[in-house]
Amino acid sequence: MKMQPKAEMAGVGSKQTGLILKPGALQQVLAFASLIVLILVFTFASSNFFQFSNIVGILLSTAVTGVLALGSTYVIITGGIDLSVGTVMTLSAVMTGVFITYWGLPVPIGIVGGILTGAICGLLSGVMVAKLKIPPFIATLAMMMIAKGLALVISGTKPIYFNDDPVFSEVSQGSLFDKIIPGFAIPNAVVIFFIAAIIGSVILSKTIVGRYNFALGSNEEATRLSGVNVNYWKIVIYTITGIFTGLAGILIASRLNSAQPALGSGYELEAIAAVVIGGTSLSGGKGTIVGTVIGALIMSVLTNGLRILSVPQEWQTVVVGIVILLAVYADILRRRKA
């Protein structure tokens, strides 16, 4: 028998509101503190860790999963999940390759086309979830396989290289920063990630979409009964996730200077992990973009640091798994106290 304290209990129990921070803020502080602790630990453990080139490496490796995680945050706050972001990212990369390499379209148009591919996939997932009432897990699982298959079919299972137009690889690998401050070569991908995070954060906290995003995740029926077109906003939210996914596709294609059709599966889980470590609740209604950024950074700092300490790759994965468990359990403990 599953039981839960009902509202009546709150009357007695909830008098410990001595917290200065709201629960959401506390969450972020905790995640941020863990990130700092990790960085300190690795800095002391190895002199190779806190080097400019290594930090840039960490940031660069965060960019792709980070942008995916940004997008996933929205869907997860609705209480849904998007399993398709990994392979949709690949499909977007492949489509960009088709546009630029096969069709010879200009790079900017190819980029827009890639992002649009992601947006359309997100839109379709949104329609499946909102209109057809297919559970998000199943709808996006289907989308994941469809995108995976399409990426292979369209590319003929072979990588598409962007050798004709060297500009494209600059999108990720180049550094506008280097031109402004010589020697301070932060790759564009990192800058794009942070800009995307800022825009993402504004969407979530300042716009009407963001408000409905939380409302939906918190109590969908109440939102519907308040005269909000719930289906419409759900589709919008899945589409936004798709746009971020498309952007991630551009970043990864540019970084590899090719669209690798076999890549992509598994990225969605890393994205979800980053979101969860960042304190967004899988049951919906709670979450922040800042948290997701920190979550993504924790993942790559961990992987990078462990690699520098020569921990074998297999064990790195085990550690990341444990970190996810700890993050979620800490969240449960906090909520039980509140």
Binding site: F214, A215, N219, E221, T223, K286
Partner: peptide, 17 residues
């Protein structure tokens, strides 16, 4: 019919922000 994660004000004007 309220969204628990939203504030009092946000709940009252939900759909009419």
């Amino acid at each position: 019919n309220l969204a628990p994660d939203l504030t009092v004000a946000q709940n009252i004007f939900i759909g009419r922000e």
